[in-house]
């Protein structure tokens, strides 16, 4: 055992220098040159100010915005997490029931697409399904005073299909969609919002 200690120490030191210092630093250097935007977090700016990352969900509560999926991380970009509630969790059933009832009352369409009542794995899912976007269209149109068809068109324009026609799921980036929405019809001041009633009663059976 003793005879193995010296090579062990030498080897871990050299490996650390190679894989723990040289490798990540070289990767950082190359990435910053080749893919600077992505390497720095795919950040979006509007009027010179960072307004978020296309890859990180942010909270939207205004009825005039498309809303993302609920977040167990409370949209904290520095503390990702899922709800981790099990399928037979009473707490989960209560939460989903409440959300479903609220969404059903806020939006005339039925039923509620499942991704809008379930929290994502990261709590930072930037996307919703096309169905979940379409589900919100009447509400948005009403809140923004737009034609439903116009909003729906915006949704379709922002849908990303299967990658290569196969991989992944069709989706809509909520931040991108809301930016597009703002571009089409600038949002009225929040104070003038009538404010939709929020259902708080539990649907627990």
């Amino acid at each position: 055992m003793l005879s193995q200690i010296r090579p062990a120490l030498v080897m871990i030191t050299m490996m650390t220098l190679l894989t723990g210092v040289a490798y990540p630093l070289a990767m950082t250097g190359v990435s910053q040159v080749l893919f600077a935007d992505q390497a720095n977090g795919s950040l979006l700016t509007r009027e010179g100010k960072a307004i978020g990352s296309t890859l990180v969900a942010q909270a939207f509560t205004d009825p005039g915005y498309f809303q993302p999926r609920p977040s167990a991380a409370n949209y904290d970009g520095a503390s990702s997490t899922g709800s981790n509630l099990g399928p037979t969790s009473a707490a989960l059933r209560q939460r989903i029931g409440a959300d479903a009832t609220r969404l059903a009352s806020e939006n005339p369409s039925m039923p509620v697409p499942v991704d809008l009542v379930t929290t994502s794995g990261s709590g930072l899912d930037p996307d919703i399904s096309p169905a979940a976007a379409s589900f919100q269209v009447p509400r948005i149109a009403k809140a923004r005073g737009l034609e439903s068809g116009q909003v729906q068109r915006l949704v379709w324009e922002n849908v990303k299909g299967h990658t290569f026609g196969l991989l992944g799921e069709p989706r809509v980036n909520v931040l991108a969609l809301n930016l597009a929405l703002d571009a089409v019809a600038p949002r009225r001041a929040p104070a003038t919002q009538p404010g939709e009633p929020v259902a708080v009663n539990s649907t627990d059976r």
Partner: peptide
């Protein structure tokens, strides 16, 4: 009133 055709989406992206 939930459309579950997408399957069990709790905790999924």
């Amino acid at each position: 009133p939930v459309d579950q055709t997408a399957g069990n989406m709790e905790g999924k992206e």
